[in-house]
């Protein structure tokens, strides 16, 4: 039985994620829920879900570190940190030799260079536009009348891919419609869309300076089509952690654990001195 626990909460635009760690840093459980625009509520739900699931009491949670777009809205948090810091920390904890993180979330994508000791180096985020994000795929899935989850498999099984030149969501949508009008097969279009995202993310990553090994995190890492295209375009293997969506929450939890340990050290120094 752990003396205390730490929770990492990642409140993103599409989903809320929670990870619970014990004092040794062992991850006890995680939970993911869609936010649907209700940030505060979903943060509370995901927190309660994980507590109920593990049977850990709220009082035993010594620190709650929040991250993601909704990080400042969450009440009773110990501290909030940006996704950049948390994704880097989470990725490093999962695999200490990781030098580069590509995170494609619902509303943004980022590329982060990690120093060899796991600290954040240079990073970039997409500009004010949905291109190269999960949102782009979501809109396109709707246009094509297919389910978002089908897209990955569809893309990797298609030998052909359509050339989608616009990464602007609005223009790409009309491009997709005219491709279909010209008789393009849906899987080829899907593969083309995955390629368009990968190209866009490549631009972001190359500005940071691509340095393997590369880990991919965020919901879109589950889309095999995008992953496949990214590794082709970057000419690098993409390492996908078992649960790519929760890496930010995991990183937040670890940052919390480190904070507690640091303040304990300080306490020890003070007690020794007195």
């Amino acid at each position: 039985m752990s003396a205390y626990y730490v929770m990492g909460l990642d409140i993103g635009s599409a989903t809320a994620k929670a990870v619970l760690l014990d004092e040794s840093g062992y991850s006890l459980a995680f939970a993911v829920r869609p936010t649907r625009g209700r940030l505060v509520q979903s943060a509370e739900e995901v927190k309660q879900e994980i507590l109920a699931h593990t049977g850990v009491s709220e009082e035993a949670v010594k620190a709650i570190i929040t991250t993601g777009y909704g990080r400042d809205i969450v009440q009773n948090k110990t501290k909030s940190l940006t996704e950049i810091t948390c994704h880097a920390r989470g990725a490093y904890a999962t695999m200490p030799n990781i030098r580069f993180v590509i995170d494609i979330g619902g509303q943004d994508s980022k590329a982060i260079l990690l120093e060899p000791d796991g600290q954040v180096g240079r990073f970039e985020m997409n500009d004010k536009c949905a291109a190269g994000t999960g949102r782009f795929l979501e809109v396109m899935a709707r246009t094509l009348g297919i389910h978002l989850d089908e897209m990955g498999d569809m893309a990797i099984h298609s030998e052909k891919y359509s050339k989608i030149s616009s990464t602007c969501t609005v223009f790409a949508e009309s491009e997709v419609i005219s491709l279909l009008a010209q008789g393009e097969e849906i899987p080829a279009v899907v593969s083309g869309l995955c390629r368009a995202i990968a190209e866009r993310v490549y631009g972001l990553a190359s500005r940071v300076g691509i340095t393997p090994p590369i880990m991919m995190t965020g919901g879109v890492a589950k889309n095999k089509g995008v992953v496949n295209w990214l590794s082709r375009i970057l000419n690098q293997e993409m390492i996908i952690p078992p649960e790519p969506q929760i890496i930010g929450a995991l990183g937040a939890g670890i940052m919390g654990l480190e904070m507690i340990k640091k303040s304990n050290e300080k306490m020890n120094i003070i007690t020794q001195n007195t």
Binding site: Y69, T82, I84, T85, D108, Q119, V120, G121, M125, K128
Partner: peptide, 17 residues
């Protein structure tokens, strides 16, 4: 939102460096 987020992340990086 976006700019604020970038500044926060950047300052976390500068601080840790």
């Amino acid at each position: 939102e976006q700019v604020g987020n970038r500044i926060d992340a950047f300052m976390e990086r500068v601080a840790s460096k």
